[in-house]
């Protein structure tokens, strides 16, 4: 990424761009296991001494210690499995114990008000953690029209993300079958902590 930010066509402040990037990365890693190219890019990351920075460094280390095939296997065990993975990364499941419950209906309602829709060929329910992370990224960058202001981002975040995703990331961090994805869990959890703090400050 350019340190000047001049290459970015958007007028988004660099720190907001960075937030969108983290959401997009989480969306990417939780939707499908990374291939060799992305693993190589992850391996080159270097975080600073902050908790989030340490999580970045740890993820880089985890990326160096694995390969695309092993990560795919981890992903399958965690999220697909035979008859279901170790974790169910859906808001509805975390909030009610069941899929397709009220939290999903509320999310769909909120999405329609924001003008966001799922494509016809996507089968995953919209409350999958990767879909929610991508929606957050899109709200920040304006992928769904004008960028959403912080108040609008916060309403979406509080209702559909903060209410459960921290617990999901903590579960991912502790998943015995995972290694690379444990580091993804730490990154996600610490990122959400920063997000909560930043939204609180803006209030």
């Amino acid at each position: 990424m350019s340190s000047t930010g001049e290459q970015h066509p958007s007028a988004l402040p660099p720190e907001e761009e960075q937030r969108a990037q983290v959401y997009a990365l989480l969306a990417r890693l939780l939707a499908q296991p990374p291939g060799a190219d992305l693993l190589a890019a992850l391996a080159s990351m270097q975080g600073d001494a902050s908790p989030f920075g340490q999580a970045v460094s740890r993820l880089a280390e985890a990326a160096r210690a694995t390969d695309a095939r092993a990560v795919e296997e981890e992903f399958l065990v965690l999220f697909i499995g035979v008859g279901g993975g170790v974790l169910s990364p859906y808001a509805s499941y975390y909030l009610t114990g069941f899929l397709h419950e009220k939290p999903l209906a509320e999310l769909r309602d909120h999405m329609s008000r924001l003008g966001i829709a799922r494509a016809d060929d996507v089968k995953e329910p919209e409350d999958h953690v990767a879909a929610l992370a991508e929606m957050m990224a899109g709200l920040i960058t304006g992928a769904f029209g004008d960028p959403a202001d912080l108040g609008e981002q916060r309403r979406f975040f509080d209702r559909h993300v903060a209410s459960w995703a921290g617990r999901f990331f903590a579960d991912l961090e502790a998943a015995p079958s995972a290694s690379f994805y444990q580091a993804v869990g730490t990154l996600g959890r610490r990122f959400l902590e920063v997000e909560v703090q930043a939204f609180d400050m803006a209030a």
Partner: peptide, 27 residues
Amino acid sequence: ARRDLFRAAGLGVGALGAVAITAGAGA
């Protein structure tokens, strides 16, 4: 203040190094 918070929290420019993911319609 928000910028300072993100910088202090390790989310400054280049926090993810060369990793650049593009997501979202119209991206």
